[in-house]
Design a protein around this nucleic acid. Sequence first.
DNA 1: GCACGGCGTAACCGGTTTGTCACCGACCGG
DNA 2: CCGGTCGGTGACAAACCGGTTACGCCGTGC
Lengths: 223, 223
Amino acid sequence: MKVLVADDDADLRDLIGFTLSQAGYLVIKAGDGPAALKRFAEETPDLIVLDINMPGLTGFQVCEAIRQRSRAPVMMLTVRGEEEDLVRALDLGADDYLNKPFSPRTLLARVKALLRRAGMESSAPLAAGRVTLDLEEYTARIGSGAPVRLTKLELRLLQMLLANAGHTVNSDRLLVQVWGHRSGGDRQLLKQLVHRLRQKIEANPAAPTLLLTAAAGYKLIVD
Amino acid sequence: MKVLVADDDADLRDLIGFTLSQAGYLVIKAGDGPAALKRFAEETPDLIVLDINMPGLTGFQVCEAIRQRSRAPVMMLTVRGEEEDLVRALDLGADDYLNKPFSPRTLLARVKALLRRAGMESSAPLAAGRVTLDLEEYTARIGSGAPVRLTKLELRLLQMLLANAGHTVNSDRLLVQVWGHRSGGDRQLLKQLVHRLRQKIEANPAAPTLLLTAAAGYKLIVD
DNA sequence: GCACGGCGTAACCGGTTTGTCACCGACCGG
DNA sequence: CCGGTCGGTGACAAACCGGTTACGCCGTGC
């Protein structure tokens, strides 16, 4: 599930990005209006988080442009008390809004609700490099090969790696994301899970080319 | 277009009522939970505005009860900062919410957005693929076969699957939509209901061709 | 009061998934 | 050279899951 986050405040953008990617969404970022439209066209995200105040084009203009091409849900970030903005945003087809400041938890709940409402919950496949994930079917496809059936844990692991494709993901973080709790000692589980996943997605599991071991974690190769 | 407004604060109720009726909606009012359910049953409104804090039954309980009978959009009125409430409301199937205090203009914009959204969704027919549902008669017809009588729960389950025909519907979501209560360990119920429904609609219930088990849920086959 | 349908609950079965253990080779500092 | 750590691997058992059968409760209609 791809989410485009457009905000000129780099800190806020990163906070939102971190929150969403922790939850398993693939995050695409843009720092101004034109960039947002560009990334939107390139990536066709499933949901857009838009700050109203941005250089180049305002969130309003971006929202309007997006609405002409897509019905993907749009969440606007507004400043508390600017009701005019709010009404205007909703009139332009925004689906929800969030008053700044907001907590990551709230953001996540709203994003989930929005996706559920849009029925988009798990329809569009998640992809990076040669790996495509179908969350609905619990399958992965490598390049143009046949889809492989994954288990719940394998899916979650691959989803995490995919959400951070090209970058090493720390083992501890994987443990937390895949199993939910569990403290550091349980590397064995991760070891096994990686092994099982490699059996399914690697052409030669003994010499991985996709899911590589990196210092302190694993990474998914993207090119 | 009928809107049910349930709030124990008479002033607020009147304000909302006035705003909506000015905008051309037919407004029905209720001052507590039980009254809200009563008016809901009598009037079958197209949208419900629900305060969370009400005597008799809370907005949560009312929302839950309404969701068991209807998919009409529900807007909850919440107190700012009560995030637990918010998350719970959305989990119970509320479609939107508004933080108090809010301006009439905001309310109107949100109500319009909600109805517009629901209007799009309500265009979904009660048939998909070879399955046709008759909500009045409590029957389903498969292809050109004879109509089969369904029970209330079976109907609701099939309705949910039909609304997302061709796509997997998550078990948790089915649980919430069909029974209202939160997921928990009640998979057994769903298991049974699916089984019973398959007995009725599948030519060979042991080898389903319509209602398939998918990872994490069930799906209705459309082609 | 009785039969019946609807529905919640429990128990069982077979297949899959996941947790655990034991072992291997590679690497590393002493 | 030696013990220790680390990632990878195979094997196995425990837990889980979906389908199924069976049973019991309860409200409805006769």
